[in-house]
């Protein structure tokens, strides 16, 4: 396990290194002055030469890269070309908002995806299976921007169940301290925290469900096919032959074995989710990294693009390595269980 850990960690470090080289070189690839592209300070600014110097632009490219890393780790991500505000300040408030939405959606997908897959596998080629399969197939093919818009029309406009924009009704006047609305409500001294929490939940519901939909159906499909494979195995028959009850067979043999290939694909589910975050945040005016990145591309706000890309890619790489680790950690144990019975 230690070897696996070391190997995954080095993998993470190498990919992060490459990513940082890539985001660094973006300053050169974007149109315009590389100093402006990385710092957000225009060439006419009185402090331009000093800033260029601080970022190593008077020196060779290696030096520039080191300076880039230094700035990155110091939280000096430059200024937005759009309004000259520090990117790091904005990022600090937006990242937790994205993370909150993504984690809840992922949790929702994990909570409902695999169980649906198991149900489909257990009732293989029967009614429940057909319903779940067609639901997951269509859910997998539905463009998320269309789904979001349809759900806004149905649940917000026609039925009037949920609000459609932002994290909370701004009249609650919750001061954004962390950016995560639930934590901010908890930290605020508002006498109406319970009402604010309910309001925030209402705002969260629709984006979270739409965001969860794609990873959810992916997990359902993966679990279903994995469980069908496992159910065909001889050890399952053997378990029944030894007189184990259906639930015992399911929980002790089928489920752990079927979850193994599902776990391997968990990273893909998360990647899908992050792809969709870009679009969902825009549609639901969620003040997170995704909508920020997409808008900065419109606005050609290069320092923001660099920061947004770096953080989203880091999040994905980190999540994938974590999933690999969890998988590697679970794998021998699953095998042990298998041998033990």
């Amino acid at each position: 396990m230690n070897r696996v850990f070391a190997r995954q960690l080095s993998l993470l470090l190498i990919t992060l290194f490459l990513l940082s080289v890539f985001t660094f070189s973006l300053s050169y690839w974007f149109p315009g002055n590389p100093v402006t592209n990385s710092s957000g300070v225009s060439t006419e600014h009185p402090l331009f030469t000093e800033i260029a110097e601080a970022r190593g632009f008077q020196s060779h490219i290696g030096h520039q890269y080191i300076a880039y890393l230094q700035h990155l780790f110091q939280g000096d991500w430059g200024l937005s070309l759009q309004d000259n505000t520090p990117i790091w300040q904005e990022f600090k408030l937006r990242f937790p908002a994205t993370l909150e939405l993504a984690i809840l959606a992922m949790a929702f997908a994990l909570l409902f995806g695999p169980p649906l897959g198991f149900i489909a596998a257990i009732y293989h080629r029967r009614f429940a299976d057909h319903v779940i399969t067609s639901f997951s197939l269509s859910g997998y093919s539905i463009p998320v921007f269309w789904l979001a818009q349809l759900s806004i029309l149905v649940f917000a406009l026609v039925l009037g169940w949920v609000p459609i924009a932002g994290q909370i009704n701004p009249l609650f006047d919750i001061v954004p301290v962390t950016g995560s609305i639930f934590i901010d409500i908890f930290l605020s001294d508002s006498p109406y925290r319970a009402a604010a929490l309910l309001n925030a939940l209402q705002h969260m519901l629709l984006p979270m469900l739409v965001l969860a939909s794609t990873p959810l159906v992916l997990l359902t499909r993966l679990t279903r096919s994995a469980a069908i494979d496992v159910l065909k195995q001889k050890y399952v028959k053997g378990a029944y032959a030894r007189g184990l009850s259906r639930s015992e067979v399911f929980f002790r043999h089928v489920m752990p074995n079927a979850m193994q290939p599902v776990l391997r694909q968990m990273g893909s589910a998360f990647n899908l989710l992050i792809t969709n975050v870009l679009i969902i945040e825009l549609i639901f005016s969620w003040p997170g990294i995704g909508s920020w990145l997409v808008r900065s591309i419109f606005e050609r706000d290069y320092p923001v693009i660099q920061g947004g890309l770096f953080i989203l890619a880091t999040l994905i790489l980190f999540a994938n390595i974590m999933m690999n680790l969890v998988h590697a950690w679970r794998y021998p144990q699953v095998r042990q269980e298998f041998y033990a019975s």
Partner: peptide, 26 residues
């Protein structure tokens, strides 16, 4: 299970139906 899941989702929506801002936040 299916029913239970549907029920809980419905419950979530029903809970989300009561819009009430405290008067101070008028």
């Amino acid at each position: 299970w299916v029913n239970a899941i549907t029920l809980s989702i419905t419950a979530l929506f029903v809970a989300a139906c009561s819009p009430a801002l405290p008067p101070e936040h008028n």
